[in-house]
Design a protein around this nucleic acid. Structure first.
Lengths: 187, 187, 187, 187
DNA sequence: AATGAATGAGGCTTCATTCAT
DNA sequence: CATGAATGAAGCCTCATTCAT
């Protein structure tokens, strides 16, 4: 109806639903209904549920990266960059608590579907690189390794936040993260 | 070999399958077949798929806790305890890469099913306590907060290991974890 | 409901419908309804539509072979055998005009489905052999080649009968077949 | 290159696809793509899939008749005509093995669609006539009946060729056909 | 304690067809 | 003439669950 934007509307709705509930618990029917489209219409734009999920994920990731990366990188000092990174990450976790689970699901689905694994590595590396570069600026000895840990921590927190959010005092967690991840730097 | 034992065999098989594939990707049929039982038989022992999954999860968790906790706690120094904790955790991650995902799934399923959320908190606390106590012995200032971070890191690593295991150098990761998590202790 | 016989009832209904309409024009829904079973029930007995069609075809073929072969072979002279063969074949064509089309369809479906082509050759040979042996008894010089022609002719007649049955004078056709196929025999 | 030509291009593509795969296994989408047209464009030229299939079939038949009939009829002796008929028929079978199946499908479809059965009889008669006239020239006693048999044999061979082509020795088959169909002629 | 048969709901996908532009 | 978007119906199949035996 409204030309080009239909596809984007679908992606938004899909991202929203997939981030709320598990891949298998969101039906094409439901997405279609929420977009205001027939099921067939969905398949006109995306060749399969998996394809839609994948594109929705990429769409969400792109949005996130485009918004957040520049803000982080524009901070003055390395320390401020890391602080900004932590701040934005927590904001993201709080707002998209199920996104990393969705990520995993789509990834697993991709394995079933003949997979284009390269794309996934690309993602992983892209955001690892951001962490890596910051840790390097900070003078951390093994920036890469610490970047991996930091990335894992974020996803782990996302998941635990879902299940035990009441235990979380965000302020305390942030402070503690700053403390332990800024440890052991070159003189 | 009857009575109780059938139930246990079911739990073992279920745990294995659920830990390998997602909740929705394991059918009762498949579990039954692998146990050597009919689908009907399964339902004699467990009232629903969800119930089976939950009990399988608890069963697995118990086994893990019973095996690992004593080993960790029997280490001499606090430092050795933490090292042991890290060692066993990595061993576990490598052997049960999908267990934490399964955990999350059952948790979410429990929300649909009228949920007994208390039980879940219990779990979370039980293993948080272990970490907490160790960090306390180590003289960490905010042992609880650090315990939360450590728990989250483990689950995060599990997930990332699934998706980007090639990037992982286990030895390096362990060393780095030891470095950052033993930081900032009382004099 | 009625134990074992359900499967056979399904086969009968399926054979009937598939012989009436094309493979793609018969739905599982319809078969189920006519059997008095739910769609799910069908899938309990047959793992897929193709599998059901294949078994239905085999079922039909078996019935035909079991009924007809002995009658043909019990005729006294070779000439009478051939006459009996022609008679029964026409009877069959008139009663099951779409069976050979169904045969072809299932065969083509089998190609899509990773195919067990050996089974099909088996069929073809089984009934070729019958023709072959009769032509041999009749002293035909190339019994095998003539058997192939005869088999093809039968299927061709079946199809043409569907489309232009009014042109067919069965009696004339039989007589002509007897004439041309008994030609050119050893002295 | 427009107007009429698009329509002809569609017919050619459709004929090709329909002759390769079954009616139900060729989608309008696929035809459109291969023609280099949108689905909508197809429907501009043909009011329905059935209509397209029917016209494609007629188109193919016309082409065949226009090319082959004259060649056959220009042979010197009746025997040579029949030989030419057999030769061209086999060539056609080998090149268009699924055409007769397509024919049947469109015919059946025509029954669903309120049908113009007369047209079909026309076809049947047109090519029966060719055979008929040749058999008459050859002095066969019941040329019409033999023509029916010959037509049926060709279609039967086409089908069997699809399923058991390895059993076919074309040369042998031709020789045998010549033998049996030239039998029983007026002195 | 267990089986086998069956149900019923829901899911993904395909596709001919329509129609505004 | 042709496109692109969308519909709606139908189809195959999966699966947790039930229940008579």
């Amino acid at each position: 109806m409204r030309r080009k934007e239909t596809k984007e509307r679908i992606l938004e709705v899909a991202l929203e639903l997939f981030s709320e509930r598990a891949y298998d618990n969101v039906s094409m029917e439901e997405i279609a209904k929420k977009v205001g489209l027939s099921k067939g219409g969905l398949f006109y734009h995306f060749s399969s549920k998996y394809e839609l999920a994948k594109e929705a994920l990429f769409y969400g990731f792109d949005q996130w990266a485009k918004t957040i990366f520049p803000k982080i990188l524009s901070a003055k000092s390395p320390e401020d960059k890391f602080k900004a990174l932590v701040d934005y990450s927590f904001e993201f976790i709080l707002n998209n608590p199920k996104l990393s689970r969705f990520f995993l699901e789509v990834y697993e689905e991709s394995i079933k579907h003949g997979n284009e694994l390269e794309q996934w590595k690309g993602f992983y590396e892209e955001y690892l690189e951001l962490f890596d570069s910051i840790f390097e600026e900070l003078g951390v000895l093994n920036p890469r390794v610490r970047a991996i840990l930091f990335g894992a921590l974020l996803d782990g927190l996302t998941i635990h936040y879902l299940m035990a959010g009441e235990y979380f005092d965000i302020r305390d967690l942030k402070k503690e993260i700053l403390e332990i991840f800024l440890t052991g730097r070159k003189a």
